[in-house]
């Protein structure tokens, strides 16, 4: 089967972001960018399914600026077969991304689409589910285990009280949770080989999708800073402070 994996270029998860002084957004100039950690897990899962003989081809798609080609190359170095970049310099909402992905799904006809459960920049956790609605495919969100069984896929999902297992008809959509797998690192030879793998660049117009947004960001602020605390010397002092100063126990 063919698997489509969506990846997003985001600020590296180790970077402590700063809000711009004019409150227009977060300062992303000269900040290290990487593949969204949940997308790495999605790529890894697709590669494992290929190694098991379940998948025959892995197409990796990203929607974003020209520089997102770096993240596609990373995915190719990890084992994806070819890449598609839907180039757009605008910041797109999840619904716009889902519509663009729907157009790619229509073209590529994958049996399984794997996405991360959320991007660590917008923290939306929407795109996979929205793609589910647009395609009519079943969705297995927050997956911690994925098993393809004939024309169905069994997905174990992380839910609030524990774990839930659902059985979905293929084609289906899976969004990855942290414990699904541990992504591998790209080896140097594979990084070199990835440079020769095909990478197609298309525009939203070419896909026949107009991207509009009904959400406007008015301002972005730093969260209220916590006032500096104190270090106590002993357990007795801690308990005394909690009882008499903070009055929380």
């Amino acid at each position: 089967m063919k698997i489509l994996v969506a990846v997003k270029r985001v600020v590296d998860y180790n970077v402590k972001v700063r809000v711009k002084a004019d409150n227009s957004g977060v300062d992303l100039a000269n900040v290290k960018m990487s593949m969204n950690p949940f997308c790495e897990i999605a790529v890894e899962e697709a590669v494992r399914l290929k190694e098991k003989g379940v998948a025959s081809e892995i197409v990796v798609v990203s929607i974003g600026p020209t520089a997102a080609q770096e993240q596609l190359r990373t995915a190719l170095a990890l084992g994806a077969d070819r890449g598609v970049l839907v180039e757009s310099s605008e910041e797109l909402n999840s619904l716009a991304v889902a519509k663009l992905l729907k157009a790619v799904v229509d073209k590529e006809q994958p049996q399984l689409v794997i996405l991360g459960k959320q991007a660590i920049d917008s923290d939306n956790n929407q795109t996979g589910q929205m793609l589910g609605a647009l395609t009519g495919f079943a969705q297995g969100t927050f997956a911690s285990k994925v098993e393809v069984e004939g024309d169905k896929v069994k997905v174990e999902r992380e839910i609030d009280g524990g774990a839930q297992t659902v059985l979905l008809n293929l084609p289906a959509i899976v969004t990855t949770d942290l414990r699904l797998n541990e992504p591998r690192y790209a080896s140097l030879p594979n990084i070199m080989k990835a440079k020769k793998k095909p990478l197609e660049v298309v525009t939203p117009d070419a896909l026949g999708v107009t991207v509009t947004s009904t959400v406007k960001t008015l301002k972005v602020e730093a969260p209220a800073a916590r006032s500096a605390g104190i270090k106590v010397k002993s357990v007795a002092e801690l308990v005394e402070k909690l009882k008499n100063e903070a009055k929380v126990i």
């Binding site: 972001v17 809000v19 977060v26 923290d123 009904t214 959400v215 960001t217 972005v220 602020e221 730093a222």
Partner: peptide, 19 residues
Amino acid sequence: TFKRPIYAGNAIATVQSSA
């Protein structure tokens, strides 16, 4: 108009929806 955290709570966005 609503407030929501982004970037793991390191920024708070005020967003307006015309939907």
